[in-house]
Amino acid sequence: MLFIDFYLIITILLPLTIHSVDQNDDHYQDVYFEVVEPSDINYTFRCRPSKQLSTDFNQFYENIYLIPAKPLRGCSRLQNDFELNRNIALIERGDCSFVTKIEFAQQSGALGVMIMDNDSTAHAYFVQMIDDMTKRKVLIPAMFLQYKDGHMILNSIEKNHVMGARINIPLNLTYHQMLKVPRAPGSNWL
């Protein structure tokens, strides 16, 4: 019992951005962001940065927009580059490599990319975004977002007839804060 109490005290007091105390665990690297608007999805979401492809966020972005790419799969020049400039692109997985998607977002001036899964049956895992070996340089952060979360955000943007979701990213949450933030219904944070 003493061991468990000591573990709980240490876990609650240490400022962590993880789900476990094992720093080799993939959860240690997760990035959290909150949607400020639209208000119907005012939740905190979790995404996973690419281990191979991207850079880290070098600053906190407050009230930046997460904007769906046009075309959504992002496998060709993006048609809404004016809106994506200095914002984050929301792109759906599929049809081309992750590097291709990120490169088109970079060319549009996006500060980062969230690639949402296209597999509605994949509820509990993140895809590892891998390099396509074309030696193209990724200069912006790229994160993977689970299907349910990504499509919840996309559907809200469309339903509310707005350009994108206004977000704050990355959040620096302590373990204790992670227990209190409003998570999207059905989000898998285990």
Rank of each mutant, 00 (worst) to 15 (best):
S39H: 03
L139N: 15
R46Y: 05
T44S: 01
V181A: 12
I41M: 01
H19D: 11
L179Q: 10
D40Q: 03
Q177V: 11
F57S: 06
Y7S: 04
N172S: 13
I115R: 05
K137C: 13
D26I: 04
T174G: 10
N188F: 10
L53I: 01
I153A: 02
L13D: 07
G94S: 04
N172M: 14
P38Y: 02
M116C: 06
V113S: 12
F3M: 08
Q128M: 11
Y65L: 13
C96G: 06
L111E: 14
L14Q: 02
N87P: 09
S39M: 04
I88Q: 09
H19L: 10
Q106E: 13
P15T: 05
L2I: 10
E103K: 09
T17G: 13
Y43S: 04
Q128T: 12
V127H: 06
A142H: 10
D56C: 01
W189M: 01
L173S: 08
E158I: 13
F104P: 02
I18L: 10
D5Q: 13
V21D: 05
V21Q: 06
L139K: 15
L8W: 13
K159G: 05
G164R: 03
G74A: 08
P170M: 11
I130T: 07
D56V: 01
T134G: 13
M152V: 06
L66H: 03
S187R: 00
D81R: 13
R166I: 10
G74D: 03
Y175R: 05
E158K: 13
T44H: 02
F6E: 14
L53A: 09
F144G: 15
I140T: 12
A165P: 14
N155W: 07
G186F: 00
P15Y: 11
F45S: 08
I140K: 13
I102L: 00
H176N: 10
E92M: 15
V21K: 02
H151T: 09
I91L: 08
H19Y: 10
E62F: 04
I102F: 06
M129P: 09
V138C: 14
D56T: 05
Y61K: 09
T17R: 09
M114A: 06
I67G: 00
V181W: 14
T174F: 14
I169E: 10
V99F: 12
Y28N: 11
S187A: 14
L78C: 03
A124M: 00
I115H: 08
Y147T: 11
D56F: 02
Y175P: 01
I12P: 00
